[in-house]
Amino acid sequence: MAEFFSAADVVGAAVEMERRGQALYRRMAQVAEKPEIKRFFENLAGEERRHEELFAAMAKRLGAAELPAWSTMEEYSAYLGALLDSHALFSPGFAKEMAEKSGLFEESVRGAMSLEKDSMLFFQEMLQLIPGSEHSFILECLEEERRHLRQLSALLKK
């Protein structure tokens, strides 16, 4: 389980999440049979890369975490650790399983939807810990993840 002592540590987890998401979307783009699906996943990988850069810059600016009033560092660290441990991108075997299924359209899209939802939840929780001056960056990434989820859902309906 992860332990967090600073807001930069929490943001570091977001950086790693975005790196893993990029790699997965690049893999999905490589095996996509239709050019429009390939472009779609390449675009998602590019947006995850931009998120990584935003979070990496944020991590350099941050100091201590701002715990919610109802929580202790130990409690919130345990919660965030559990949240990350259950995130699709940090689950043992998820990336390998997705790589194996990346030629299967529906399974790939559903896996991508799962990781987008997990990322949205993590970003929501980040808002509890990160100074208000940084919230606009997190909210921007959160809205983009919502858009990704809508786009992935629309792909399934086509």
Score class of each variant (00 low, 15 high):
F90Q: 11
H51I: 00
E134F: 01
L67M: 13
Y79M: 15
Q128I: 00
S102H: 08
E48P: 01
L142C: 04
A112F: 07
E74I: 03
G111E: 01
L54T: 14
S114C: 09
F94T: 07
L83V: 12
F94N: 07
L80V: 04
F137V: 14
L121G: 02
F123R: 01
A69V: 12
F105Q: 08
F123W: 05
F55I: 02
A45T: 01
A45Q: 11
T72M: 11
E125G: 02
Y76C: 05
R61M: 13
E74K: 14
F90R: 05
L67Q: 14
R50D: 09
L115I: 09
S102I: 01
E100Q: 13
L115F: 14
G81P: 02
I130M: 07
A45L: 04
G103L: 01
Q128G: 04
L104I: 09
V109N: 11
S114G: 11
L104E: 14
A57E: 14
G103Q: 00
E52I: 00
E47C: 05
L129A: 09
H51S: 02
G93A: 11
E134N: 01
P92L: 06
L44M: 14
L80S: 07
W70V: 06
S136R: 08
F137W: 10
E74H: 09
E125D: 12
R110Q: 05
S114W: 08
A88E: 14
M126D: 00
S77M: 05
G111T: 01
F123L: 14
R110A: 02
I138L: 15
A95T: 08
I130D: 04
W70R: 14
D85Q: 13
E106A: 12
R49Q: 15
M126K: 00
A88H: 12
G93P: 13
Q124W: 10
A59V: 09
A88P: 07
G93C: 08
G46C: 10
Q128H: 15
E52W: 13
G93S: 12
A99Q: 12
L54C: 05
H51D: 01
E48F: 10
K101V: 00
V109Q: 11
A78W: 08
A99W: 00
L83N: 02
F55P: 02
P92Y: 08
A88R: 07
K117E: 12
A95W: 06
L62A: 07
A57F: 10
E100I: 03
A57M: 06
S86C: 04
F94P: 04
E140M: 12
M73P: 10
E52G: 09
L80C: 14
G81V: 07
M98D: 05
H51M: 03
H87Q: 08
E100H: 13
M113Q: 13
K117H: 13
A95C: 04
G132K: 15
G46I: 03
M98V: 03
F105S: 01
S108W: 10
I138N: 04
G81T: 02
P68S: 11
Q128W: 07
A95Q: 13
F105C: 04
A99C: 03
A78I: 03
L127F: 01
A59H: 11
E97G: 10
A64Y: 04
M73D: 08
Q128D: 15
E125I: 00
S91A: 15
G63T: 07
E75C: 06
R49D: 11
L80T: 02
A69Q: 14
W70Q: 12
P92V: 06
